[in-house]
Design a protein around this nucleic acid. Structure first.
Lengths: 189, 189
DNA sequence: GTCAATTGCCTGCTACCATTAGGTTTTGAC
DNA sequence: GTCAAAACCTAATGGTAGCAGGCAATTGAC
C-alpha cells in the first residue's frame, strides 16, 4: 500500500487548511486522518496529541502572518507602516478566519518563545522607533497596537460590527489614523 | 427519588462556575450532569444541545458584566468613567477567566441581539457623549474602546505581557490615559 | 382525597473522537 | 539481497454528544 508521506509539518499545514474550511474546532486528529486516507492512530507517530497538533497549526499560522506583515511594512514608515501592518493582520484574518482562530490558541510560554510571536514584536518596535518614544513607552505602545488590532479583528469576525452604521472599513481607517495621532503625541503628555 | 431541580438558568449559572473552575472548554453536558448528580440525558429537557448550553453561559456572563460595568461607571465622567469601565472589564476577566472565555463565544446574530451586548454599547456611548464627537465618530470610538479592552485583556490572560518589563498594570494605565487623550482630540483632526 | 396530565429524570443505544499497545509492511542504506 | 528503522495498521479502552422511549413523582382540577 502506498504511503501518505506524513510529517509533522505537512499535518500542521493541512490542519491550517482544514481550519479555514471547517473552522478551527474541527481540526481534529480523526478528520485529518481522513484527509490523508490514513487511520487516526497513524498520526501519533508525528504528533504527540490533539493539543500538540493544534499548537503546531498555530505556529504555522504565526509564521505565515509574520512573513506577510514584514513584506507589507517594508519600505514604509510612520502612518503608512502602521496601516500596512494593521491591514496585513486584518486582511489575513478575513481571508483565513480558521487560521486566525488558530492564532488565538494559548501556547505555553516556551512554545510561545519559539514561535514567530517575537518577530511580530520586533516588527512593531521597528515601526515605533520612528515615533521617538522612551523604551518603556515603546513597550506600552506595542501592547496597545497588538491589543487593538487583535481585538478589532476578533470582534469584527464575530459579527459585532456588522449590524450598525457606519461600515467597519470606515471605523478601521479612523482607528488606524487615531493610533498614529496618539503615537505622535505620546511623549508630549 | 428526589429531584435535582434543573432549569435552564440554573444550568447556565452552574456552567459559569464550572468555567471558572476548570476552563470554559470543560463546560460539558457530561460534567454538568455529574455536578447535579444526574444523567447527561436529563439536561436535554432544559437545554437543546451542548452549544445551546454554552451560549446560555455566555449570556449569563454578558449580563453579569454589564451590571458590574454600569455600577462602576455610575457617578463618574470622562477619564474617570473610561478607567472605571475598562477596569471593570479587566478586573472581571482576572477574577473570572473562565467566564471571560465564555464571553468570547460567537453568538448567532439574533442571540447576540437579545444579549446584554447592546447594554454594553449604550454604556460606552453614554461615556463618549461627554467627549462631543459626531455620531459617526461615536461609533468609531465605541469600536476602538471595545477592541482595545477586549484585545488587551485577552492577550494579557494568554500571558503575552507577563515575560517583559514594564508591568502589565503600568501599560494598562498608560493605555487608558492614551485613549482619553485620543478621544479629547478626536474631532480636531 | 382521587385521578389524570404533565414534568423530571432514567435506561439504553448510536456514533464520534482521543489515545495506547503492539503488530506488520515498506523503504532505504549497505 | 539483508536488515533495521520508519510508516502505517489492527484492536481495544474510555470519554462525550445526543436521541428515543419509559416510568415515576408532582401538580392541579374536581
Amino acid at each position: 500500500m502506498g504511503r501518505a508521506g506524513l510529517t509533522a509539518d505537512r499535518l500542521a499545514q493541512a490542519g491550517a487548511e482544514l481550519a479555514d474550511e471547517l473552522g478551527f474546532e474541527q481540526v481534529t486528529v480523526a478528520e485529518l486522518a481522513r484527509r490523508f486516507k490514513v487511520k487516526p492512530a497513524s498520526l501519533y507517530s508525528h504528533v504527540q496529541s490533539s493539543a500538540d497538533l493544534k499548537a503546531r497549526v498555530a505556529l504555522v499560522v504565526l509564521a505565515e502572518l509574520a512573513d506577510r506583515a514584514s513584506e507589507a511594512v517594508a519600505g514604509r514608515s510612520r502612518e503608512a507602516a502602521l496601516a500596512a501592518l494593521g491591514n496585513s493582520y486584518r486582511d489575513y484574518a478575513h481571508e483565513h478566519p480558521g487560521r486566525f482562530a488558530a492564532m488565538q490558541l494559548r501556547l505555553d510560554s516556551e512554545t510561545a518563545a519559539r514561535s514567530a510571536g517575537p518577530r511580530h514584536t520586533r516588527l512593531m518596535l521597528a515601526i515605533l522607533r520612528e515615533y521617538e518614544l522612551s523604551d518603556a513607552d515603546q513597550t506600552h505602545a506595542v501592547r496597545l497596537l497588538g491589543s487593538t488590532f487583535q481585538g478589532y479583528v476578533s470582534l469584527e469576525l464575530s459579527g459585532s460590527f456588522s449590524h450598525s452604521e457606519p461600515s467597519s472599513n470606515e471605523s478601521w481607517d479612523h482607528i488606524i489614523h487615531g493610533l498614529h495621532i496618539l503615537l505622535e503625541n505620546w511623549q508630549v503628555r
